[in-house]
């Protein structure tokens, strides 16, 4: 009976959603001069950055990125607070059985390559697809691989909290430095170089590198908390 009501409700919801999007159409440009035209044009002329999505996230709507970094920090803190344990044993893990031989030798080979890939992606966030969030997640995946394969691989939790906190503090300090140079919060006050250069775009690569560090440290700390919660 309950499943029948759920299916009827979902069918009505799906019908109205489908009708709305069928009328909206797929792939037609709806505005002659929308917001995206200004962003696409200013990215080349003012900022000299090749990746438009990066320039929207860090520069044009940079305050939302600050809010998003705060949401990540709150999630990691909430998770650490909910899974609170009074004592900390060094060797206690919630993994049921040890990893096989293939996983152990393969992850030792893959770990530097994954870290290098993640660092490459968040350093080149303004030149190619990628950026801080994506690269930070890849670095955290590398750490997850090593943590699952080896029992005695530890990452110092204090180093992770320091890296995460300092990256967040420097992000806000860069925003305040925009104030000191006579502009607004998070304004681009450093010189923009030529396009498609590594050092172009003002504060955009620096802010994205800080976001990459913060996301990597945060996700690794989160994985570490969940892995050590067996009491």
């Amino acid at each position: 009976m309950k499943k029948f009501i759920v299916i009827i409700t979902l069918a009505v919801l799906g019908f109205y959603l489908g009708e709305t999007f069928y009328e909206l159409g797929f792939g037609n440009a709806r505005f002659e001069h929308g917001v995206k035209d200004t962003y696409l044009e200013k990215t080349v002329s003012e900022l000299h950055v090749a990746n438009t999505v990066t320039s929207i996230i860090v520069n044009f709507r940079g305050f939302d990125t600050l809010g998003e970094v705060t949401v990540l920090f709150l999630a990691a803190t909430a998770l650490g607070g909910i899974l609170y344990k009074k004592k900390h044993h060094a060797g206690d893990r919630s993994v049921l059985f040890p990893a096989s031989r293939i996983v152990m030798s393969g992850s030792k080979l893959l770990f530097p390559a994954v870290i290098l890939l993640g660092v490459y992606i968040f350093v080149h966030g303004h030149l190619s697809p990628g950026g801080g969030f994506q690269g930070g997640t890849i670095v955290a995946t590398g750490f997850l691989l090593m943590l699952l394969a080896y029992d005695d691989f530890t990452v110092s939790h204090h180093v992770l909290s320091y890296v995460e906190s300092f990256a967040g503090i420097f992000f806000v300090l860069f925003g305040l430095a925009g104030f000191c140079n006579g502009g607004t919060f998070l304004e681009n006050f450093m010189p923009v170089g030529t396009m498609n250069d590594l050092f172009s775009g003002g504060i955009i690569p620096i802010v994205y590198i800080l976001v990459g560090f913060k996301v990597a440290a945060e996700l690794t700390g989160l994985i570490y908390t969940v892995l050590h919660e067996k009491d």
């Binding site: 962003y39 990215t43 990746n51 438009t52 999505v53 996230i57 697809p129 969030f133 396009m195």
Partner: peptide, 30 residues
């Protein structure tokens, strides 16, 4: 894709909308 390769800096008329992609990045993290 809305990425300007070297030599194609005036291809802005043929690019997809980059604003929903930036919003969805935030949504994925949340």
């Amino acid at each position: 894709a809305p990425i300007f390769s070297p030599g194609y800096e005036d291809a802005a008329a043929k690019m997809v909308d980059p604003v929903p992609q930036a919003l969805v990045l935030t949504a994925i993290v949340i």
